[in-house]
């Protein structure tokens, strides 16, 4: 049996600086042992523990989609010990990757439904994974309308800029990108995510909202969706907590009797209502 504490060796294949402030980068890893890629079969919404020699581990949501073969991507903001060390790394460096961990976006539940994806800032990563998964080849047929509302503070802080452009070209996607404040070159929407949600006003019919973003965005976005008539069962979000083991043993990321690392990070609002508000 695979020892869940031991990472798979991976090599940093590509580093993409995502934002103007340069503190968010996307790291593309390739598995050193090709067979490990099979073992690392993941679903959008899951996360991995990035493991750096002598620095430790950091739990990060998987930003690539399982339909993208040959690599895994993580978009990481420079913050603590591990992520800072990661930002220092060069392409070609060997490091470790543990996982995939946690549950995932509930793909089976989403199937056949209209999907509204709401993302804010840096939390867009696992949503990007989900979008890329849903629009890949025949997968697209399994889902109804897909509406994406994505906001960042300013144009420079938008992640995956090239992909956003590609997505906007498709006619089977309704992409709404907004920034709190634009700049001279910005031609898109301006305004906060909750306001744009109101404006786009996705229908609640056969629809599920998948929301991920900073707490303040979530706080103001939820009322909009309640007003639109979305039930708590049909609003899905992903939690963040301090984690260590990632497998429900070390005891710090529990919310009530659920471990965010093992039973989460994805919960519906209805499920969250049953848990304690300790997150």
């Amino acid at each position: 049996m695979q020892n869940p504490y031991i990472p798979y060796p991976v090599v940093v294949d590509k580093i993409i600086t995502e934002v103007d402030t340069k503190d968010i980068k996307t790291f593309r890893f390739k598995f050193v042992n090709p067979e490990d890629e099979q073992k690392y079969a993941y679903i959008p919404g899951q996360f991995g523990e990035l493991s750096i020699y002598g620095k430790g581990e950091s739990p990060i949501g998987i930003a690539s989609s399982p339909t993208q073969k040959g690599y895994v991507e993580f978009t990481v903001q420079k913050a603590g010990v591990v992520t800072s060390a990661l930002h220092e790394m060069e392409e070609g460096t060997l490091m470790g990757l543990r996982g995939p961990l946690g549950n995932s976006w509930p793909l089976e539940f989403l199937e056949g439904k209209n999907i509204v994806i709401v993302g804010g800032g840096f939390a867009f990563t696992t949503l990007r994974s989900l979008i890329n998964y849903m629009i890949y080849g025949d997968n697209r047929k399994r889902f109804g309308n897909i509406t994406v509302i994505y906001g960042a503070r300013n144009p420079g802080l938008l992640l995956y800029k090239d992909e956003l452009i590609e997505w906007q070209k498709r006619d089977d996607l309704n992409i709404n990108v907004t920034v709190d404040k634009g700049d001279a070159t910005w031609k898109g929407k301006e305004g906060f995510v909750p306001a744009v949600c109101k404006e786009v006003a996705p229908s609640k019919e056969n629809a599920v909202a998948v929301i991920c973003g900073p707490p303040v965005m979530i706080r103001f976005t939820l009322p909009v969706f309640f007003e639109l008539g979305f039930s708590k069962e049909n609003i899905i979000t992903s939690l963040e907590m301090r984690m260590k083991c990632g497998i429900g043993k070390c005891g710090r990321c529990n919310v009530g009797s659920k471990y965010v690392c093992k039973d989460g990070p994805v919960f519906s609002l209805a499920e969250l209502d049953k848990l304690t508000p300790e997150y």
Binding site: N3, Y5, I6, P7, P9, V11, V12, I52, Y53, G54, M89, G92, T93, L94, M95, G96
Partner: peptide
């Protein structure tokens, strides 16, 4: 163990 390319590890 640190290697020129990063880390090599053994369980």
């Amino acid at each position: 163990t640190r290697t020129p390319k990063g880390m090599a590890f053994s369980s």
